[in-house]
Amino acid sequence: MRPRRNPIPDLQTMNKPISRLDLQSSKLGRQAALATWKAALPQYEISLGTDLDDFWMDLSAWLLRKVVFTHGQTSPTRLERHADRLSDGYDNFIFVHFMKGRWQGEADGKPFTLNEGEVILLDGSRPFHGLATASSYAMVNVPRAVLIELAPSLPLLHGRVLHSASGWLLADHLAALSRALPLMHQGEAERMANATLTLMAACVGNLTDKAQGDMGSLIPAVRLRVERHVERNLTSPDLTPQTLCRDLQIPRSTLYRAFSAFGGISAYIQSRRLDAARAILFHPEDRRSVEEISRHLGFGNATSFARSFQRRFGCTPREARQNGSTFVASSQVLFERWQSVLRANA
């Protein structure tokens, strides 16, 4: 007879402090703080909206199991996610709440303006750029799989400012969380993280297909339809540009235009399959061979799969499995990369 599992949580674990990082220009110096910030966020291009002599920053980040929460204050700054960096596998949604200041930019070529007190939602797998005034903000990195699990039918999210009652509620919640997190222990913080994710899912659930039309273009809606179809059919050997046009009744020219920022639709399909392969390799209980994973995800053979994987992630599939992670694989890995960069530059 098997022993019964103890339902009582590990109180020592639940009451330990939250993993936290701090980056302050007043302690590191302006130049070192800026260099550290750039090194910790290689998926972005960061530049100053002012001279280095006027640059200042004070950032704190917390790891809350599934997400990374950041609260910061910075001088004017430009943040860009270039199309040529999309192949790095960074696949997070980013909720940004400006408590003070203003942010203006473009997401997928569409302008956005984020005013004080508002929340914007950005898709890290797509290009964007923005120039912020001196600001105070809260930012939450949410892995795509985490948000999709809570909101399976995601509407078009990239560059959306959450102008709704639930959006204002989320803004107030993120501002309050930035004040309360320094006082929380791990168990309490993780419960609040789950509540935050539930609130986020409620917010995006209010974005209807009709509202998507406000983006002013057919292309984003086409891309969303295709992305959903690709995710449902990643393992199908028949997933090709031709079958997408046929099954979704999309003109070939429209399909290719919708995915031009990703190097074309074929490149997009391959990148999503490589992301899925990486997730399998990192799963502690999935021991399928590289050849089995290659067949499962529709690659021609294990050799071509390994070459494509190494071009995308800088290591072979076997090396990835042995190392167990890349910096974009999960919130924990992202946070650990930040830790290593901060230690190296302290």
Rank of each mutant, 00 (worst) to 15 (best):
A171P: 05
S47A: 08
S135Q: 05
S19M: 09
V96N: 03
L170W: 09
G109K: 10
R179S: 15
T235F: 07
R225G: 00
E292D: 11
A189L: 10
P17H: 10
S331V: 06
R78M: 04
P3E: 08
N141Y: 14
S166H: 11
P284E: 08
S294I: 10
Q43T: 09
Q310G: 15
Q104V: 13
S136G: 14
S125A: 15
M1L: 08
N301W: 07
I120D: 04
S325W: 00
A306E: 06
R321L: 03
W103N: 02
G72C: 05
A39Y: 05
F93E: 07
Q31S: 14
A107G: 07
A258D: 00
L147R: 02
R126V: 01
Q310C: 15
D51G: 06
L274P: 00
D88W: 10
L122V: 04
I8K: 15
F259C: 04
R287I: 07
F262M: 07
T133L: 07
E149F: 13
P111F: 05
G109A: 11
T303K: 10
Y44P: 13
R272Y: 03
V142S: 09
G89D: 01
R318I: 05
D91N: 15
S25Y: 11
P220M: 09
Q12Y: 01
S135N: 08
T74V: 13
L224K: 10
T36L: 13
S164N: 08
K66A: 09
R312F: 13
L281I: 03
L150W: 03
Q43N: 12
T326A: 14
R4N: 14
V222I: 03
G300P: 13
P111R: 15
S135Y: 10
Q104D: 05
G216I: 02
E336D: 11
R311I: 11
M14Y: 12
R78G: 13
M200F: 06
L334V: 08
S75K: 15
V161N: 12
V96L: 10
L297V: 12
G300W: 09
S236L: 11
M139D: 03
L147E: 03
I219G: 01
G314F: 05
Q12K: 08
P42H: 01
H129R: 07
A171D: 09
L244K: 01
L147T: 06
R30V: 08
P143A: 05
S164V: 09
R2C: 10
S26K: 12
P182D: 06
D123W: 02
N233A: 03
P111Y: 12
T113M: 09
Y137R: 03
V290D: 06
A171I: 03
H163Y: 07
G159V: 08
K110T: 10
Y256E: 14
Y137V: 02
Q104P: 04
R160D: 14
G298P: 01
N301I: 10
T77P: 14
L121T: 05
Q12D: 08
Y90K: 01
G300E: 08
A175S: 12
P17R: 09
K27I: 14
P17C: 03
V204N: 00
K110H: 15
L21V: 11
V142W: 00
I250V: 02
A201E: 11
P143I: 05
S164P: 12
R343D: 07
